[in-house]
């Protein structure tokens, strides 16, 4: 049951989008988000949407997976829409019934708000769909490496992140197993008051933590056995290198941002 959850799922592939340097993709995501938050009109939102659709098509990501990624956020999106719909004043009054007042401006804001959230989530998903977690942590490590000068343990943080990603499926499987085992001893996780249910988690959490510590201990030894000694002098199997397509990608990103800024300047 827990196994069905997908966290930042990666779709392996060999498309242009997959081949881009992960650093490029990470920076492009930032550009994309900035552009998204500067967009104010249908035209500029359209520009951002066109960019997203183009990348999705280029990356051969099925649109279905994009919408599936949005599903868990549906309640949040609807909530935002409703809030904006009723609390934004201005423009012409469209509905005036009992305590509900809907203005045209409200409809517009709600619409843009929903669009913005959806584009934001989809963009982030697009990054994780086309970039392996290991490439992502690698990119983060490299992009943040200037921070090493001010004694930020960048390598260690990146290593922690990639190990966490590695162990998520293992720990989910383990949780499943422990839950089944305690259920077999008559434990009940589904009924009773909130406090009772919280208490029922103890037989799951204690073994889970004990096991996580044991795993951490064994993993540390195994890493030492394979000559791990921190980030110093470490080389990589896959070296990150900016290529011509990365330059092209940056150009496209710059055009997107410029376009949105220009449109905003003209009040569009």
């Amino acid at each position: 049951m827990l196994k069905d959850i997908t966290l930042g799922q990666y779709f392996p592939g060999k498309t242009v989008v997959h081949r881009l340097d992960p650093r490029t993709k990470l920076l492009l995501l930032i550009v994309y988000i900035v552009a998204l938050f500067m967009a104010k009109s249908f035209l500029s939102y359209g520009l951002v949407l066109a960019f997203l659709v183009t990348v999705t098509v280029l990356g051969r990501i099925p649109f279905k997976s994009m919408t599936r990624g949005l599903k868990p956020m549906l309640i949040f999106i609807l909530f935002t829409a409703v809030l904006n719909l009723f609390y934004t004043k201005g423009g012409t009054l469209l509905v005036d019934w009992w305590i509900f007042h809907i203005y045209s401006e409200g409809v517009k804001t709600a619409f843009f708000m929903v669009l913005r959230i959806m584009l934001l989530i989809s963009g982030t998903f697009l990054l994780t769909y086309t970039t392996s977690p290991i490439a992502l942590t690698d990119a983060l490590e490299r992009l943040l490496s200037p921070l090493k000068k001010i004694k930020v343990p960048v390598h260690e943080l990146a290593m922690m992140m990639s190990i966490a990603l590695r162990f998520i499926p293992t720990l989910i499987e383990e949780t499943d197993k422990i839950m089944s085992a305690q259920k077999a001893r008559g434990a009940d996780f589904e009924t009773g008051s909130l406090i009772r249910r919280a208490k029922a988690l103890i037989p799951i959490l204690v073994p889970l933590f004990v096991s996580a510590f044991r795993r951490a201990d064994e993993l540390a030894t195994a890493m030492e056995c394979r000559c791990y000694h921190g980030g110093e002098g470490r080389t990589r199997l896959k070296v990150l290198r900016f290529a011509t397509i990365d330059l092209l990608a940056f150009l496209v990103g710059a055009l997107l941002l410029a376009g949105v800024i220009v449109l905003r300047h003209f009040g569009l």
Binding site: I134, S162, I163, R166, E218, C227, G233, T235, L237, K238
Partner: peptide, 20 residues
């Protein structure tokens, strides 16, 4: 508890990477 990376090749590469 001894596999470090989440791709097979990256895991096999772990030790030589550490060795520079």
């Amino acid at each position: 508890n001894q596999i470090v990376a989440n791709v097979v090749e990256e895991d096999v590469a772990f030790a030589p990477e550490n060795l520079g």
